[in-house]
Design a protein around this nucleic acid. Structure first.
Lengths: 186, 186
DNA sequence: GATAATGGATGGAACGTTCAATCCATTATG
DNA sequence: CATAATGGATTGAACGTTCCATCCATTATC
């Protein structure tokens, strides 16, 4: 495995285990089995490492969610496509979500207008909501509010699942997706 | 103002501004206008300060939400009471929520069985869900799942509002509460 | 009632530790 | 053999914590 990938992997797992504030370079280097000189060959600083990882992971997530996205079908099916993928990605890559959540909080303070926040996933869902509102099948609320509702449900449900509050079988996942749709349906 | 209150206030505002990981004792002491000796008269360590603040704020929030709670009315009205208070508290004390969210992540790692996680607010909502399920007005899902859905919507909506994604007038707040109810209604 | 003694609260200097970052000798690569 | 990659020792800065002199309200003494 490449050293850079090892550094990313070690950083991500450490943050998921101990939280962003507790992760030091020494821990990263130890877990990645890499010397500090090597790390500084790939990254100019610790901050640069975190930022690059953030860009990489947000892009990876957007790519996964939008891959094979069929935008020729109706709003209900498109909504289901995106949210199914979103939930599945969150479940299988929860460590990434933990990092993104913790780090994006820092980002908003230092780089408030970062383009990452206008990701293609949000563009796709906005399209669905606008079209759905014209067809009178989706509530007439601000698009960002609709986004927060549907996304908030998914994130919250996966968080609870990852905290071992309950199981999530396939049938329950389907019910959750239906709840997301019903919550914003006109 | 008491020195202890000044320390709490400085810590809370700093965390809301810069995130938990960036808050140092030097910054806290400077903002609270207090010497380090004073701080260590009130708290045995930085961790102890954060933990005590966490206990204080979670209790404060639970007290607010449950004050004047009328449990003699029907499930719909009780649900509305609790979630209205919850949303209002989050809106007016968002800094506290930021801290609690960031700190509870650390807590789960170091003290996974902390009793704080079984707070009276969750007990009250669980009562509502159980009763509502008997009356066939609430979806037949695990209680913790229902909790995550309704709470997730509120938290997500307030987060978006505090990120200046949209406004939240009284009418919109009412619509959000209706959405919470409809999302878990049978 | 005036003065001295007490003790807790306070702020800031000083301490050892830990951090991110740099430097450099060694190893791998082509 | 030349060049790049690597890991660990090293550095200075920043950190949490400790220590101590000072302040001040309260209490004791005469």
């Amino acid at each position: 495995m490449g050293k850079k990938a090892a550094i990313f992997g070690a950083t991500l797992s450490l943050i998921a285990e101990e939280g962003l504030h507790a992760v030091t370079l020494a821990k990263i280097l130890d877990r990645a089995d890499v010397g500090s000189g090597t790390l500084y060959n790939y990254f100019s600083s610790k901050d640069a490492l975190l930022y690059e990882m953030y860009l990489k992971l947000t892009e990876k997530m957007a790519n996964y969610i939008l891959s094979d996205y069929d935008d020729s079908v109706g709003v209900r099916l498109r909504f289901n496509q995106l949210l199914t993928r979103f939930m599945e990605y969150m479940i299988q890559n929860f460590d990434e979500q933990i990092f993104i959540e913790q780090y994006s909080y820092i980002l908003r303070k230092s780089k408030p207008d970062d383009s990452v926040f206008n990701n293609p996933f949000r563009t796709a869902t906005a399209q669905i909501y606008t079209e759905g509102q014209k067809q009178k099948v989706i509530l007439n609320l601000d698009i960002p509010i609709l986004n927060q509702i549907a996304g908030g449900i998914i994130i919250s449900i996966v968080k609870g699942y990852k905290s071992n509050k309950y199981e999530l079988d396939e049938l329950t996942k389907q019910k959750i997706l239906d709840i997301c749709w019903n919550s914003i349906r006109a």
